[in-house]
């Protein structure tokens, strides 16, 4: 038996197989967010409905829920109701904002007029804030602690219970998870 061939062969083959086996079942499109636990990037955006600019540093001391959405996004529509209910019931210490992602102002205005909204939606010109937060698509929701740190990020439609839990984590300032 040729020892050298056996050794070289196994040395090449076993690590490769191990690597492939270990990665089986993993979704290659799932990417973890590096923003958890990091300070939330600042923003200064105009609301769709007009009025004064909303900036993150003015919200220091409050828990902020930042929801990236669009009118063409069906799951965003699903979670719209949940977000409204949570926003209304969570009091003035928790501030909700929508950030419009790749959409037209007119359509957004129409949608909000029809569906109603408990909180302002902000216009992100050129997608700069989406980029700063590392948004891949919509819906994505970021929970920011009163100290300005991102405690969790959810890349799926939310229900009221999850929103409340995430808000609690943010208020406590504990860095939670990503999803």
């Amino acid at each position: 038996m040729n020892r050298k061939v056996l050794l070289v062969g196994l040395l090449l083959v076993v690590p490769l197989l191990g690597l492939l086996l270990a990665n089986l079942g993993r979704d290659p499109r799932r990417v973890d967010s590096p923003m958890i636990g990091k300070p939330a990037p600042p923003f200064s955006l105009k609301p769709v409905a007009g009025g004064e600019t909303v900036s993150l540093d003015a919200l220091r001391g409050k828990t902020v829920v930042l929801n990236f959405w669009a009118t063409w996004c069906a799951p965003c529509f699903e979670e719209h109701g949940e977000l409204q209910r949570a926003a209304r019931s969570l009091g003035p210490e928790v501030r909700f904002f929508g950030v419009v992602y790749e959409d037209e102002e007119e359509r957004v205005r129409t949608f909000l007029k029809q569906q109603g909204s408990a909180y302002p939606s902000l216009l992100d010109d050129g997608g700069k804030i989406a980029i700063a937060y590392g948004v891949y698509g919509v819906p994505e929701t970021y929970f920011i602690s009163p100290q300005g740190v991102i405690t969790s990020k959810y890349a799926q439609p939310l229900d009221e219970a999850t929103i409340r839990r995430a808000v609690r984590e943010a208020q406590a300032g504990t860095a939670g998870g990503a999803s």
Binding site: V5, L6, G9, L10, V13, L17, L20, L21, L24
Partner: peptide
């Protein structure tokens, strides 16, 4: 992957 494993081991073994 199972087939690949079998084929790899077959080849290495046969060569060795």
């Amino acid at each position: 992957l199972a087939f690949l494993t079998a084929a790899l081991l077959w080849s290495v073994g046969l060569l060795a």
